[in-house]
């Protein structure tokens, strides 16, 4: 007999999640929630703490791939999304897939598929925007960048930037999820990183920042000024990591106290600076 109303706790990893699926089958239990260990709260429901076992995880994943490679991809991507209770949605997807076969995956409006696919589209959409909105600074021959995404986009962005800057060294720091993508000499890795502060720019870096801001402020046509349209296409939450929306301090080189040329254009439309403190970084000396 199936045991209802079970809650599983796991370590937060993708493998850990797959083990929840594995154990639910092994124990013949139907899950109502899957939560991370750290969110553990004593509850009235029966619960279980799941230990991550790679071989179990692999077996589940292989099984899903065999039934539908597309579903396997949805699982991986879905796990990166910021969908609330993503684990239980993904769990339902696997259960339905193994019970009914992959036919329902064709129907975008299917009630099990729809929330997952919507979340994955949100992830892909955010990653797509960030492919454009990410800004790098060059410091000591390394390109560095910071982002604040809602979803865990780094695994999605990885191949794009690794191909683009194949011969460079670069990193992207995800402030939201406190992890960073590092790339050097053909190798990329994503690692947790608790805290990170970008050093202030040198002369060359500061000069290119000024040039870019000037370009930005000049390219708009005044007679077509349309801030609403800009906001719709580029939501404000992205602005605080973008060069063109920084305040003056951001354009000042660490080496010179000399006045920098005013980055905004004489006849252009100056971009609003995001409030101080939310800029790319607080200046920090000696790095």
């Amino acid at each position: 007999m199936m045991n209802h109303e079970m809650i599983y706790f796991y370590d937060g990893s993708f493998d850990g999640f797959l083990c929840c699926v594995f154990d639910s089958y092994a124990n013949k239990e139907v899950l109502t929630a899957i939560s991370r260990d750290e969110d553990f709260i004593p509850t009235l429901f029966a619960s279980r703490v799941i230990v991550t076992d790679r071989s179990h995880a692999n077996r589940v994943f292989k099984k899903v791939v065999k039934v539908s490679p597309y579903a396997a991809n949805l699982l991986q991507k879905g796990f990166l999304t910021c969908m609330p209770e993503k684990e239980i949605h993904l769990y339902h997807l696997v259960v339905k897939l193994l019970r009914d076969g992959p036919g329902f995956l064709r129907n975008f409006s299917d009630e099990t598929l729809f929330p997952v696919i919507t979340a994955v589209r949100h992830l892909n959409g955010e990653a797509h925007l960030l492919k454009g909105f990410i800004r790098f600074s060059e410091l000591g021959g390394v390109l560095g960048s910071e982002i604040e995404p809602k979803n865990r986009v780094l695994p999605v962005l990885r191949s794009h930037f690794c191909a683009r800057y194949m011969n460079d060294r670069f990193f992207i720091y995800d402030r939201t999820h406190k992890e960073a993508l590092f790339y050097a000499a053909g190798k990329a890795m994503i690692r947790p990183l608790e805290d990170f502060q970008m050093a202030p720019p040198d002369d060359a870096e500061a000069a290119y920042r000024v040039l870019w801001k000037r370009f930005y402020d000049t390219i708009a046509i005044k007679e077509r000024y349309n801030p609403k349209c800009r906001m719709r296409n580029m939501p404000k939450r992205y602005w605080n990591t973008m060069t063109e929306f920084q305040d003056e301090a951001f354009f000042r080189s660490q080496n010179s106290l000399a006045a920098v040329p005013d980055p905004s254009a004489p006849n252009g439309i100056p971009a609003p600076a995001t409030p101080p403190g939310s800029g790319l970084s607080a200046p920090e000396s000696g790095s």
């Binding site: 794009h160 349309n226 801030p227 349209c229 439309i269």
Partner: peptide, 19 residues
């Protein structure tokens, strides 16, 4: 340095004040 593929078609790097 660089690549251009269909995956970045429609990739906007920013939007100017005229949208």
């Amino acid at each position: 340095i660089g690549n251009t593929s269909s995956s970045v078609a429609g990739c906007c790097h920013t939007f100017s004040a005229d949208g």
